[in-house]
Design a protein around this nucleic acid. Structure first.
Lengths: 229, 229
DNA sequence: TTAAAAATATGATATTTATCAGTAAATTGT
DNA sequence: ACAATTTACTGATAAATATCATATTTTTAA
């Protein structure tokens, strides 16, 4: 396992690539690696973060608890994503919890390495800014989707999203297996509703399942459903 | 009307304040002022923007059209906000339309002034980044709200939001008067549903109305409703 | 391995919200 | 000032979704 940031391939996927050699060395010297087991939190809503977390392996769900006790999953983060950046930048406590969906490996980078670089290296700052601009655009899209599409459409969309972002395994199932509850929290619906729609999609031949694993069978029809046909 | 950016008070509210004197002078020399009438667009979804728009006066709604022809309003921007920043930063066409809710006055700033400064002045970039981090946090909150709260709760929240952000007039009505349709587009519901809930709130003594103007009568109860009591 | 716990599944029903149809009121342009 | 148009409103109904109850399957842990 590579332990020097300078050589870490993950870096290619995130803003750290805009750091200079020396900056990267500092990060590397100050970082620590952590293992997080499935279901455990990396950090929780309201925490004050002392740094950011760079995902090396596994998937994390970023979610927020609502008054009625249900989680809303705002984003699923995988290899190369940096968690907690926003809180560190705005110097506020996080508004989201990050919980491992898989067993995970993450690097913790103390905030000083980040904030120092933000103040000195415009390239890095710009790179982070571009990432954040992208995230904001995605968030806007989610807002429009949730408020304008039916639960059925959002379910179809979620399956396509999971396929496009996390791929399929050898047997044609979605590589990222989420519990029915997590699926419902991504889509923003009741767990029973999500389960019901999974059954319906199965009957219609749009997907197939095996235990909690789900595979996409008719991508075209799912896409049509998302578009509203 | 002040026409030099260096002296423009609006600047105090946005990231332009992190610019140096020379940078600001360039902006000032290249900017143009535009008047936009109520209902007219500043830019529309899909446009490629050649710059950003700094709001001097009036309110703009940032919205996105869905497949079924209904708009979702993602944000209401007022004095001091800079529109189109995200698109300019990520060099993509906009995903949102900006339409004047009021008569407006905006300054158009060509993107070169912005992108040059972004590359050279880390303070400015950091300032923009902080703003964007804030916007992203707000967007996450909107996502959770929409998916976890009822239409009634979101309506209550919308009224409180309008009061807190745009204030009240001398007669105790919300200073920003939106059409019922715009309200429904902020909340993400059918216009009829929004109207129905307005009637209900009126009966319950939570708000009062006069024509399309709405005033808050019982803030405490509205707050309780948002929290789910 | 087996009992207990958790997750998945399905039916019945209630609630929320949207849609359609039509009327009343307000705004606009002449 | 007035007809035309848009916006606001209300009722009836349909559709979508949540909730509650309960059964079944899967996973977990002793």
């Amino acid at each position: 396992m590579e332990s020097r940031c300078e050589n870490c391939i993950i870096r290619q996927f995130n803003s750290l690539r805009a750091m200079s050699k020396e900056e990267l060395k500092k990060v590397s010297d100050s970082k620590t690696t952590k293992t997080i087991k499935k279901g455990e939190p990396i950090f929780e809503e309201g925490d004050k973060l002392n740094g950011v977390y760079c995902v090396r392996n596994g998937i994390s769900k970023l979610s927020k608890l609502s008054a009625n006790g249900k989680d809303q999953i705002v984003k699923l983060a995988s290899k190369g994503e940096v968690l907690g950046q926003r809180s560190v930048i705005s110097q506020e406590s996080t508004n989201l919890s990050a919980i491992a969906v898989d067993d995970m490996e993450v690097c913790f980078i103390p905030k000083e390495s980040i904030t120092n670089t933000l103040q000195k290296n415009p390239n890095f700052t710009l790179e982070v800014l571009r990432h954040m601009a992208h995230d904001l655009k995605e968030a806007d899209d989610v807002i429009v989707n949730i408020s304008q599409k039916t639960v059925k459409q959002r379910m179809a969309e979620a399956f396509l999203y999971l396929k496009n972002n996390f791929g399929e395994d050898a047997d044609g199932f979605l590589a990222l297996t989420l519990s029915r509850e997590d699926i419902s929290n991504v889509v923003g619906t009741a767990t029973e509703s999500a389960i019901r729609i999974i059954s319906e999609f199965k009957k219609k031949g749009l997907i197939h399942t095996s235990g909690k694993k789900i595979g996409i069978k008719d991508e075209r029809k799912l896409l049509e459903m998302v578009e509203g046909f």
